[in-house]
Design a protein around this nucleic acid. Structure first.
Lengths: 258, 258
DNA sequence: CGACATTTTGAACCTGTTCAAAAACAGTGG
DNA sequence: CCACTGTTTTTGAACAGGTTCAAAATGTCG
């Protein structure tokens, strides 16, 4: 369904063949997502070098994997358009969504540790990513200190983000988890210029549930309850944040106050 | 109680005054934990430069903080002896233990992202850490590629470790969480040469519970049940792994099979 | 030894799960 | 454009695992 028009326009058929940098023609310095991917306050000279970071692009169709658990790690990916989920899965049927990533965010950092990816990255809608060869990244980082710092910061933030998820999974009740989830999505949408209070969920209730440590029925029921209480409105994948303050209070006032 | 004799011996009173490298006298190249902290397969020349990494050491007494949420980030710490917990906490009383760290492991990576620490690191017993100034680390990493790679690997592994915790918190039952927790501790003890099946828990039931997303009573009850079933024996903080295979099966055979 | 913290255990309770069925929706092909 | 099939979502009712509150037992440290 909802097809990212950028992705659709840039190529029609050859989903799996990465486009080279030359073919694509556009550089990071032109990208309107650059303040999300690249360090701030860099000189024009540094800018020119950083343009060499992205070697190619790749389109990933809805439902397809950008990479899978066990795949050799060669590159990190910056999302140009679309949405992904990452998930870990075990031999037995267990799996856990570890995050949802949107444009301007990086995927693939998990692979550095062992040289092969530790999770799956699946496109939730037709998407396009910039391919950043890790070998190239390390070369450039050694020469451009600001890039090195920036990359460290990104990894560190991912660690801190996961701390937040652990807090959520370890200490919040279903209502609070959903509130935190929705507020987080809203904040990230707003950081991308979508200032409205509307969120279009790109993932199913089951995927939300996996991420939040809840069953899909609980997600559905809890959303309904939040809607009954006038905090949000829900019509299928479209969620409106009606009372942001009260949603926030819900997670800031702690486990009490039901 | 149980005092790490190394820590006790190396100084007696000046807990908070870091010892400089010169005072300490011992370098990474002499440290028996080096294969845990440093990259493998490095040349003697590289070795010499990496010895400059640790600028000083510091003793942290049981219960004291190595750093706290909000503290300025300047250094990463390598644990030389002892055990720490890291925890995030919110304005309301919520807190969540995000990990337990033992000798040879790094703490403080969370601070790189924002320049100030995002969690507390508390010593669970008298401990000693090596102080690695981040500024120095970045300098050296830019010059010594193998160090840069190694550092990236460490951060990436931390991300992957947290994925595992998310899986645990999001999809496992109490018994499985405890089994996974104990097996993880055992494996890390064994990697440090403690080949016995005995584990001395350095943390309280409440801290275990916080880490595993359970109440302390549930931790206690679940340990008792595992003991009744003959999988482990529990005497206070001393846990013996009696049937490692069955413990492992418990988490590998998935949510079925109660 | 005595004060305090930690751990164990019990019983009632509650939140979220499970199983089940209906409703809403999306994509396909006539 | 509409009927048809399969997927996603909602809602209900019974159930279960973990929590809560409480008290006793065990350990720890000065």
């Amino acid at each position: 369904m909802t097809i990212s028009s950028t992705a659709k326009a840039s190529l029609t058929d050859l989903s799996d063949v990465p486009l080279t940098f030359a073919q694509v023609g556009a550089a990071c310095s032109q990208c309107n997502l650059r303040e999300l991917c690249l360090p701030g306050g860099i000189t024009p000279e540094e800018f020119a070098r950083l343009d060499q970071l992205v070697s190619a692009r790749r389109v990933v169709r809805k439902g397809d994997a950008l990479f899978r658990h066990g795949d050799e790690f060669l590159s990190i990916f910056a999302i140009r358009s679309g949405t992904f989920k990452t998930r870990v899965n075990t031999l037995d049927g267990r799996d856990q969504v570890t995050g949802f990533q949107m444009s301007g965010e990086l995927i693939g950092l998990d692979g550095i540790g062992t040289g092969s990816h530790a999770c799956d990255a699946i496109a939730l809608e037709d998407s396009e990513v910039c391919i950043i060869a890790y070998a190239r990244l390390t070369e450039l980082a050694a020469e451009v200190p600001v890039l090195q710092r920036h990359f460290h910061r990104l990894m560190s933030r991912e660690i801190v983000r996961e701390h937040g998820v652990m807090l959520l999974l370890g200490s919040m009740r279903a209502e609070e988890r959903l509130a935190a989830f929705l507020l987080n999505l809203l904040q990230r949408m707003q950081a991308r210029g979508y200032s409205s209070k509307e969120i279009v969920l790109r993932m199913t209730r089951e995927e939300i549930g996996s991420y939040l440590g809840l069953k899909l029925e609980t997600v559905s029921r809890t959303l309904s309850r939040l809607a009954d209480d006038g905090l949000i409105s829900v019509r299928q994948r479209l969620v409106c944040i009606l009372d942001q303050a009260r949603l926030r209070a819900m997670i800031e006032n702690g486990p009490h106050s039901h």
